[in-house]
Design a protein around this nucleic acid. Structure first.
Length: 445
RNA sequence: UCCACAAUAGCUCAAUGGCAGAGCAAUCGGCUGUUAACCGAUGGGUUCCUGGUUCGAGUCCAGGUUGUGGAGCCA
């Protein structure tokens, strides 16, 4: 009886005859001996075709197989340290080989390619080992996020993608024609989360969000996925503890499940193993102090210019990078200036210039992966904030209702999935963290 | 939107203002242990577009297009 196997489990079948169905990743031609690197989506294995051991017509197929041709192979599994693969160390001695299709002119070769070419061929690039590994880690991270929230007693409550009004700023919204009425793609589920929080206590939403920002950087996507929890009776300090637990859990899960993938992408796992509880916590004003000290200690005038910051302004990318490089673990920066943050953030008692917000900056220069805050729960304070930002109060009638019927102190945050994946995988750009990146200049394929 | 850089074979890149080139991929041949194999052969070009300077432009100039890196904004 021939077992149909997933290549990731090949170690269980040494000495047995198995069938694998997949695609040719690469082939090395040695004449009467052919090494066929086969992938099946779960792993890769070296299949060896000897002319003498096969039907002549089937060996001829093996001898001429092209990259990404589809094949079904049966053969015997043996352990061999020389054999590459995922996992490595096993190979299949081919007995029969059936061709599905002989692929012609597959564009992605085993050599180097440029970014634009690879992104144009993203639908095929996904088959490459490195991309395969990254997206498997992404899946682990998504599951870890959801498992952690579920285990902490949060309920998944979905928020709408089509919305009637802005969550934050109208300039970054994608507008739709909703049967003749304007509508927008959601930039955040947060306002709905607050309604759901009052119904279920602890909730989260997880889904795609859309921002029409003209941002062209290594950390921005037009369409990105966000985990957004919202908790009743929650302080900023409670929120930081939750975020710390979540991030540690995510990293632990990736380390537990994706060691082979981390090795394939050559991630320094010691940096991930250092992600344990005890994240640093500094206020915005302390962060500004540190940046000023760093700038003063720098002799490079260009670096000094980059690190220059006016107290009360938001951090730029160089500031975040510099801050994260001061710490070997993620760092919380709390109490940002109110004027650089969203209208719904609770002012600090006795210091309305600062708000009860907190960003979590990932180490190694990655910067913000989570942003959160206590929300304003007083009806009149919220109305005055809306008016101060010239937002149409009438659009927020239902949101203001939440402050009229049993309002409570509450808090929540949003964690960017792709930035988290980029950090954990050690990637220089978020475009490889999502199967089909939507960027300022790209919506194909 | 701003700043910098780039665009040459399917891909990655060379080419002092003077014959358009290499490696890989493809095709054909050789090889029983390859790890991005190796060896031999073959085919492959609107040098991003428009205009200009010049005896002569892939190369210099002007404008445009596209891309990459960075800034701003944010998760």
């Amino acid at each position: 009886m021939t077992a149909l196997i997933d290549l990731r489990n090949i170690g269980q079948y040494v000495g047995q005859t198995v069938q694998v169905r997949g695609w040719v990743y690469d082939r090395t031609d040695k004449g009467k001996l052919q090494f066929i690197r086969l992938r099946d989506g779960s792993g890769q294995v070296q299949c060896v075709a000897f002319k003498k051991e096969m039907a002549e017509d089937q060996f001829e197929v093996a001898r001429t197989l092209t990259q990404e041709s589809s094949v079904i192979i049966t053969g015997s599994v043996r352990a061999d340290d020389r054999a590459p693969g995922i996992p490595g160390g096993y190979e299949i001695g081919i007995q029969t080989l059936h061709l599905g299709q002989m692929a012609q002119d597959y564009p992605i070769t085993p050599k180097e390619h440029g970014v634009e070419f690879l992104m144009d061929n993203r639908h095929l690039w996904l088959r490459s080992t490195r991309q395969w590994a990254i997206l498997r880690i992404r899946a682990t991270i998504v599951k870890a996020m959801r498992d952690f929230m579920d285990e902490q007693g949060f309920l998944l409550v979905d928020t709408p993608i089509i919305t009637p009004a802005a969550g934050e700023e109208t300039t970054t919204l994608f507008a739709l024609d909703y049967f003749g009425e304007p509508a927008y793609l959601a930039q955040t589920g947060q306002l709905y989360n607050e309604a759901n929080m009052a119904a279920f206590g602890k909730v989260y939403c997880f889904g795609p969000t859309f921002r029409a920002e003209k941002s062209k950087t290594r950390r921005h996507l037009i369409e990105f996925w966000m985990l957004e929890p919202e908790l009743a009776y929650c302080s900023l300090e409670d929120l930081m503890s939750l975020e710390e637990g979540l991030v540690c859990y995510i990293v632990q899960q990736v380390l537990a499940k994706n060691r082979p993938e981390l090795a394939l992408i050559e991630r320094d796992v010691s940096k991930l193993e250092a992600i344990t509880p005890g994240f640093y916590r500094i206020s915005y004003d302390e962060a500004v102090d540190r940046l000023e000290q760093l700038a003063a200690a720098t002799t490079d005038p260009e670096q000094q210019q980059l690190l220059k910051i006016e107290r009360g302004d938001d951090f730029g990318s160089p500031h975040e990078t510099a801050l994260t490089e001061m710490f070997d673990k993620p760092v919380f920066v709390y109490h940002y200036p109110s004027r650089v943050k969203a209208f719904y953030m609770q002012p600090v008692a006795g210091n309305p210039e600062r708000c009860r917000s907190v960003d979590l900056l990932a180490p190694e220069g990655y910067g913000e992966i989570i942003g959160g805050s206590e929300r304003i729960y007083d009806h009149d304070v919220l109305v005055s904030k809306l008016q101060a930002q010239h937002l149409p109060v009438e659009n927020y009638a239902w949101y203001l209702d939440l402050r009229r019927y049993g309002t409570v102190p509450h808090a929540g945050f949003g964690q960017g999935l792709e930035r988290t994946v980029a950090w954990i995988c050690g990637l220089p750009h978020v475009r490889e963290t999502i199967p089909y990146a939507r960027l300022l200049n790209r919506k194909y394929p």
